[in-house]
C-alpha cells in the first residue's frame, strides 16, 4: 500500500507547554485512522501540523512522496517554499470542529471555491462535481442557501462536501462532531462512515469512541504529546496494553 501521509518525529511547543513530543505516523492509502486521547494530549495539534496550520519545531511531514521543505531562521522554523505548501494543502481536505464555512458564499459557492480559484479547474465541470458531492452528503436542495441559514449538522456536511471537492489524497477531520447538538451528531457521523466504506484515506480526531471503534481500521491513543498505544480498534478498546489507555477507556465507559 502506498503511504499518503507520513509524519516523522514531530515536536511542537506553545511557549513552555510541550504539545507534541516526537510523533511519527504513517497513513496508508485506504486507511481510516481514529486518533483518540484526553484534551490536551496533542491530537488536534498533530492533525493541524499535516497541512502546516501549525509549524512543528522539529520533524518532517510528507504528503504522497513529497516532503515539505523547511527553513530554520532566527525567528523560528518556517516553510521554505510557500508555493509548495499551498500545492500540498490543495491535495488534502480538512474538516474543522467549527465548520468554518465562508459566510458570504452559498453552500455551492463554498464547495466550488477552492477547485475553481486554487486548482484553476473549469467552473462548469466543478459545479457538476460539487452538486454530486452535495447529493452524497444529502444537501443538494440546500445548494443555494447561505451557511447562516443551515443547522450545525448541515453546515458540517457542507464542509465535508467542500473538503471532498479538493479531490483529496487524504481527509483530515478535527473533532467534526464536537460542536454539534447531540441530535445532529448522527447525520455527520453517517456521512463520514460512508466515506470510510468507500475506502478513502482518513485521519479522524474524535471523542466519539463508539464511532471510532466501528469505523476505524486503526486507532491511535495519544498521551502527553506521544503515541501511547496503537493498534486495531478492537485491541485498543477491548485489550489495551498500556495502563493509561486502559484508564482513559474505562473513564470513557463510566461516563457513557
Amino acid at each position: 500500500m502506498t503511504d499518503v501521509v507520513t509524519l516523522r518525529d514531530l515536536h511542537k511547543s506553545f511557549g513552555p507547554l510541550k504539545v507534541l513530543d516526537g510523533i511519527s505516523l504513517t497513513a496508508r492509502a485506504g486507511e481510516t485512522i481514529a486518533i483518540i486521547g484526553a484534551s490536551g494530549s496533542g491530537k488536534s495539534t498533530m492533525l493541524r501540523c499535516i497541512p502546516l496550520l501549525e509549524v512543528p519545531e522539529r520533524g518532517d511531514i510528507t504528503i504522497g512522496d513529497e516532503t515539505i521543505r523547511m527553513n530554520t531562521a532566527r525567528g523560528g522554523r518556517a516553510p521554505a517554499d510557500s508555493a509548495q505548501v499551498n500545492r500540498l494543502r490543495g491535495q488534502l481536505g480538512f474538516v474543522f470542529q467549527s465548520f468554518n464555512l465562508w459566510a458570504h458564499m452559498t453552500v455551492l459557492e463554498n464547495v466550488i471555491e477552492a477547485p475553481v480559484h486554487v486548482h484553476k479547474r473549469p467552473r462548469n465541470e466543478v459545479v457538476d462535481e460539487a452538486m454530486a458531492l452535495l447529493e452524497k452528503v444529502g444537501l443538494a436542495e440546500k445548494c443555494e442557501a447561505y451557511p447562516a441559514h443551515l443547522s450545525g449538522g448541515q453546515q458540517q456536511r457542507a464542509a465535508i462536501a467542500r473538503a471532498l471537492a479538493m479531490r483529496p489524497k487524504a481527509l483530515l477531520f478535527d473533532e467534526p462532531t464536537s460542536a454539534l447538538d447531540p441530535e445532529l451528531v448522527g447525520e455527520v457521523l453517517g456521512v463520514i462512515k460512508g466515506l470510510a466504506e468507500e475506502g478513502r484515506t482518513m485521519l479522524i480526531v474524535t471523542h466519539e469512541m463508539g464511532f471510532a471503534a466501528e469505523v476505524a481500521s486503526r486507532a491511535i491513543f495519544l498521551h502527553a504529546g506521544r503515541i501511547e498505544e496503537e493498534g486495531s480498534p478492537r485491541q485498543i478498546f477491548a485489550e489495551p496494553t498500556s495502563d493509561r489507555t486502559r484508564q482513559f477507556i474505562r473513564r470513557y465507559l463510566e461516563r457513557a
Partner: peptide, 21 residues
Amino acid sequence: PAGSIEAGRVAGMSRFTLYRR
C-alpha cells in the same frame, strides 16, 4: 473570523487569493 481565514489557507490559497476571495 479566524476560522474563515484558516479554511482558506488550508485549501491552499495564496495570500493574494485569500485576501481577494
